[in-house]
Each structure stands twice: as structure tokens, then as C-alpha cells.
Simulated assay, not measured.
Amino acid sequence: MDANAVSEVAGRLLQAYETGKPIPPIIDDHPAATVTDAYHIQQEQVRAWTAQGEIVKGHKVGLSSAAMQEQMGVDQPDYGHLLSGMFHLEHQPIPMARFLQPRIEPEVAFVLGRQLTGPGVTVADAARAVEFVLPALEIVDSRIQDWTISIVDTIADNASSGGVVLGSKPTPLSAVDLRLTGCTLHKSGELVATGAGGAVLGSPLNALVWLANTLGPLGIGLEPGHVVLPGSMTRAFPVLPGETVVATMAELGTVTAVFDTPE
């Protein structure tokens, strides 16, 4: 895709946020678009958001579990940017009006204490960079009609990012084996899924390594204080107005997302 096509698609995605109306799959009009093209579209939107005052507060790794890859029909992870306006306080009403087709998934959030820049990052490097972990709920969303996405569509759409709710109990990485960390997910009191950290590339730390080594050659480092979401422990579930979602993670505690009911 040339620069004009990249800008045109980025503009349509940005407009979808404003209008609340999703757009047709990008690959319908650009069947030859590549993953590299998709990341250029994503970066174009990030530049627009930061120009409006948003701050990059971290990154997410998407599609890092077999369950999510199967659900979305893709075969590789991707990454997106977490902007300051995406973070919501737990137990506080989250405005449904800002989302188009929201789904929710439980994750462990890494909070970095030092810079982490690839290539060449190892699991040991990643572990040393993590200050603590938190239980988290990621709200994924799609500006593509009916979630009909290819890997190009989701990457271009900022890895289908929507929002983040962080729990309030920091835990040192050394105090927990994330591979074995179990999780239950309840929606309005009903158990809808169980999972474990090992579903995320064998360990959520592997997703952090993948992210650092993928971003490094692009000149992007993970900074102290950044939040990294490594991927979901379960499949994603649609959320409706008025619902409360609770993820409980062994040794990490709980995190609760409450969605408002628009008048």
C-alpha cells in the first residue's frame, strides 16, 4: 500500500471511533495488504491520537493463545498501543458509548520497572524488567464490521484494542509462577470460563519477550512504567450494558469491570 492508501484507511478507522459505525474489512478493498502495511496504518492512528494529547502508556500482545487465534481465524500474535484514555478504574462505571462491539478477556498485566529493548531480549531480561504484575481485564473492540477480521484488519485496527481495567494488588513476579496461574471469569455472577497463564505462548513472559524483540528493530522500546498486556487466558466474551465482569487469578487477586447502562 502506498502512503495515500495508508492514510485513507487510517482515516476511515479514526472516523469509526467518532461515528460508532464499523467499516467493512480492510482486505476487501486492499486484498494485497501486508502485515507491514497494517502496522503503518496503526502507527498513523497513534500519531493522530498523540497529537490530540493522548499518551502511550504501554502495549498489548494480541492473539497469543491458541483459543484466541482459533476464535479470530489467525495464526500469529500481533501488538497494539495502549493509550492513556483507554484505562478505566475498576468498580467504576465504564461508558459503553465509547465502544462499538466490545468483548472482554482476562490477562496478567506486566508493569515495567526498567526499559526493555530488543532485539536479543531473553526471558531473564524480561523478568528483570518487570517491577510487578496485576490482574487485568482487557476490553477488546473492533472497528471492523461483525468482527470479520484477518490479521491485517486487526493489526491495522490497533490490534482490536478498546480499554483496560487494572486490579489494585501489585504482586512481585518472583512470588508467582505465571505459567500455572489459574483464572476464573464471571459475568454478572455466572462462571463463563476458566484458564491459566500457560495458555499465553506457554507463559505470559514469552509474550513480553516476543513484544520487546518485535518492537526493537522498529526503534520502539518498552519504557519504565509501561503496562504490557501479554494476551488472554481464555477466549473473549461479548459484554452488554449493565454487566459486571470479575476475573479471579490465583495468587494475584481479583479485578472487576462494571459497564454502565446508557439512558
Rank of each mutant, 00 (worst) to 15 (best):
G20T: 08
V61I: 12
S142D: 07
H59T: 13
D141P: 08
L63Y: 11
A51F: 06
S150A: 06
M72K: 00
D28T: 14
M72E: 01
T34Y: 13
P25A: 11
Q92S: 11
G80Y: 01
T122C: 09
E90A: 02
P77A: 13
I104N: 03
A48Q: 07
I55M: 10
K21W: 12
E44F: 06
A10T: 00
K21C: 08
Q15I: 15
V123F: 13
E107M: 05
P25E: 07
I94A: 02
A127M: 14
E107N: 07
V111Q: 03
P25N: 12
E138W: 09
P77Y: 09
T122K: 12
P31G: 14
M72S: 11
A109S: 07
R114S: 15
A66G: 11
S65D: 09
R114D: 14
V121N: 01
L89P: 12
H88L: 10
I144R: 15
G80V: 14
A51C: 05
V74F: 07
L14F: 15
Q92A: 15
H30E: 09
G58W: 03
R98Q: 04
E8S: 10
K57T: 05
S64C: 08
A16D: 14
Q43F: 09
E70L: 11
V123N: 13
G113D: 04
V108A: 00
E18F: 06
G118K: 00
S7D: 06
A126P: 08
G11Y: 09
I23C: 09
T148C: 08
E8Y: 06
A33F: 03
L112E: 04
R98E: 05
H40Q: 08
A32I: 01
D75Q: 04
L83E: 09
V133Q: 00
G58N: 02
E105L: 03
P106H: 04
D37G: 06
I104S: 02
T148K: 13
Q45V: 06
V56K: 11
A48R: 06
G58T: 10
L14C: 15
I94M: 02
P22N: 13
T50P: 01
I23T: 10
I149A: 08
S84Y: 06
Q92T: 11
W49L: 07
H30F: 14
A126K: 01
Q69M: 05
L100T: 03
M68N: 06
D29K: 14
A109Q: 02
Q52T: 04
V140R: 07
A10Y: 01
I144Y: 12
T34M: 12
A66K: 09
R128H: 11
A129M: 08
S7G: 08
D153E: 12
L100D: 05
A109R: 10
P25S: 12
I94C: 03
L100R: 05
K60G: 00
G120Y: 05
Q101P: 11
A136G: 13
M96Q: 06
A126H: 09
V111H: 03
R12N: 13
D78K: 00
S65V: 05
P106T: 10
L14G: 15
I26M: 00
